[in-house]
Design a protein around this nucleic acid. Structure first.
Lengths: 208, 208
DNA sequence: ATTATACATGAATACTGGTTCATGTTTCAT
DNA sequence: ATGAAACATGAACCAGTATTCATGTATAAT
């Protein structure tokens, strides 16, 4: 993680108290993971510190060794979700040179991800109210990358010309709502079918 | 409940205690309207009954004359948002026989609506956690109507064939995210431009 | 006018749950 | 071994706030 001299402190992120032992590391992870499950299931407000710590198998006070506040765990989860999603999609589209194919692969990867992490999905949604800044960062970072990809594809003539910014948001919206259909509304439609229909829309639109 | 003969109770909706006087009616409306502003601005949990009633200019206890619980006002707001949005879009697309034109008009109307009612927009988002049932009803009702419209247009040959269900969700997603870009991320891009780009995507896709 | 009903008040109640803290226990360098 | 630092505990504190209630005031019918 980008060291320089003798410093071992985390570079950009210094949230709460970082553990300094393997034991501490494990405990912190356990709490974070429990928080993901509990907050994802019950929502931010109904998820009490007591719930989280008992799910993690530690005492209530232990929470405050690693996190300064309830909101902080939440923020960290949103951040993590952002990194994970971007990483997952980047990996899935790695090496695909045709943008349309990359769209298809990216959409598939995203839908599979949200199915595997329904809790994280809900947490990001709730961030709009609990931690608006984290929410904005999540979407703006995502949108920025998406937009850059679309612009490059335009240059390369792989897709038609158009406002990359608006397109990026619209395409995110497609993925988001289709993901929600799966996770929140518990549709049993297979991902491959959804992707096929979604991709057709993205590529060709609905004009006859 | 389920009365039979000479009952005059509200037909489908019987939330809390309905007022029986013009005065009561006015007070109830004032509270509902204040709730919309306060909850929209601060979010469900930070919006206390005290905040709402003082914004409405009534005493705290007055709240419970018309609403049985804090959650109930919230539900009612989500319901109202649903009716308003559907009504607004239906009106805007009234009499447009070409589906693609109707899409454009509907998207415009939706974006204008969310700009005019940013609070309601946020409230619906928060319903996912505060009142999941209301949230689901909101989207499923919307999706059902959307889907029916798309299917009819397919029959009429106005749009290409495709899975109307998935298309409905995807198109909702586009509107939703573009609306969010305006209201939450405070983009200053004019609606007409956004609609133009969005419509192009919906109609033609991004294939070169 | 009178009275029953609807409406309004705001202080009191009751309870939840985030955060702190004094007190142990474990780990690690020396 | 041994002391210091890291880690862990859970009971207690405290603030906020949804809801209730006893007590009024306005309204409409008789």
């Amino acid at each position: 993680m980008t060291k320089s001299a003798g410093e071992v402190k985390a570079p950009q992120k210094a949230p709460g108290n970082q553990p300094k032992t393997a034991r501490g590391e494990a405990t912190r992870k356990a709490i974070l993971s429990a928080a993901e499950r509990v907050i994802g299931a019950k929502g931010y407000n109904d998820a009490s510190i007591g719930h989280i710590t008992s799910e993690a198998g530690v005492a209530q006070g232990t929470f405050y060794i690693y996190f300064t506040t309830k909101e902080q765990v939440f923020s960290e989860l949103v951040l993590e979700m952002g990194r994970l999603v971007r990483h997952t999609i980047a990996e899935a589209t790695q090496g695909i040179e045709d943008r349309l194919e990359a769209e298809k692969a990216g959409l598939t990867a995203f839908l599979e991800f949200v199915c595997a992490h329904p809790d994280l999905y809900r947490i990001v949604q709730e961030a709009l109210f609990v931690d608006p800044q984290a929410y904005q960062e999540y979407y703006q970072t995502f949108a920025a990358g998406y937009r850059a990809g679309l612009e490059a594809a335009q240059e390369a003539g792989q897709i038609s010309k158009g406002d990359a910014e608006t397109r990026a948001w619209a395409l995110m919206g497609i993925g988001r709502t289709l993901g929600e259909q799966l996770v929140v509304f518990k549709s049993d439609k297979p991902i491959s079918e959804i992707v096929a229909s979604g991709y057709d829309l993205i590529a060709n639109g609905i004009k006859p």
